[in-house]
Write a protein that binds this DNA or RNA. Structure first.
Lengths: 202, 202
DNA sequence: ATAGATAATCAACAGCTTGTCTATTAGTTG
DNA sequence: CAACTAATAGACAAGCTGTTGATTATCTAT
């Protein structure tokens, strides 16, 4: 960014570039996506791009921040849950993730998929970990977490993202309500038992 | 491939190119890796590359096949297991995956990581699914699998790969024996029960 | 409303990679 | 030895990149 950020022209340009990137990605044109493609789609001059971003990765970072802020707001629109009482209070949080995905379905399908961007996927997983799973670990386990817990956390986050990708790839074979209930009722309870027990083989 | 495949010169060239690709990737030079880099590393002329591969992706495919054949052999070096009896018979299979990873540790760390290749990661996950997890589903469940089972399978595979990436990223914080036992004894039993039970919430 | 500041445009540039030619050299096989 | 074929070397057009300088359009403060 070498320009103002508060100037209406800058805001407009950045918005157009973000939208162009998201729309082109949604059209499965992510691999080998060029600055030319983006600026053409946005109806802007290629030179203008470099006034705002150093390259495509920086624009993607901007898109990522924008989408994640939105998802954060979507998720925290729900009441904070008391995890101790009942695991099913998680259901609205899990549902809101899927509802958010539906808003940019084509974009997420491409960028999280085989032809997508591993950096974005990693950030996406970290966000879900931060928003949903780490609070559970903290509420259950106040002391320093051991490697078994850390590994279990990673297993659960990766599994959750894997299920999301499956759901997107398969073009939503079941409803948000169905998949959310399946995850909350059948998958996460096992995760909890994993966190509370300490079966260290030594 | 426009050349013989059985000619000693071709075999030598392809081997050199595969090794160059794997070594350069291991040195964290995967993103923006060029044909020039590879042929220079291999000590070959750039034109020679195109006699054997149409592009980097095709060379990576060749590397993938080679590594996966080796992993398949590593895994099947163990006795076939009867999953019904005891889940812990899986331990040698899980261990052999980690021992295989150690042989090309730096390569796998890069290509499965944030700067890596999602296509490779997807194939890697599919291979583990085929070699380890799908046989379990089939042994437990002869009828057509429902979406809950399919989802559980995806969850388990993704979680397993997630743990592998965690282990590589953290530079092997625990031994192969420790992580394999933890996975087999504490993680998989919970999730594998998912693959056989029918908790359809409807 | 005007003047100064700043963003957007346009044309052009060198640098790099790609994929494909040719012609020539080196190695393999019968 | 003779034929076949892989490897090399140099060159080419094409495409994208990131930057420059000059010009036009738009914003903002007075």
């Amino acid at each position: 960014m070498k320009v103002s950020q508060s100037d209406p022209r800058s805001i407009r340009t950045c918005t157009l570039l973000r939208e162009a990137m998201i729309n082109l990605t949604a059209e499965k044109k992510f691999t080998n996506l060029t600055v030319q493609d983006i600026t053409k789609q946005a109806g802007l001059n290629r030179t203008t791009f470099y006034l705002h971003y150093s390259g495509i990765n920086e624009l993607l970072d901007d898109c990522t921040r924008t989408l994640f802020n939105q998802m954060r707001a979507d998720i925290y629109g729900n009441e904070l849950f008391d995890f101790q009482s009942d695991i099913t209070v998680l259901e609205p949080f899990v549902s809101s993730v899927f509802y958010h995905l539906e808003q940019y379905e084509d974009f997420y399908r491409t960028i999280l998929g085989k032809q997508g961007n591993p950096e974005f996927k990693s950030l996406f997983q970290a966000l879900l970990s931060e928003l949903i799973f780490e609070p559970i670990v903290e509420s259950k386990n106040q002391q320093e977490i051991d490697w078994q817990t850390e590994m279990g956390l990673r297993f659960t986050c990766s599994g959750f993202v894997g299920v999301i990708v499956w759901w997107l790839e398969k073009r939503k074979p079941v409803s948000v309500k169905q998949i959310s209930e399946q995850i909350v009722c059948d998958v996460l309870p096992d995760y909890l038992s994993l966190l509370s027990q300490k079966n260290v083989k030594e």
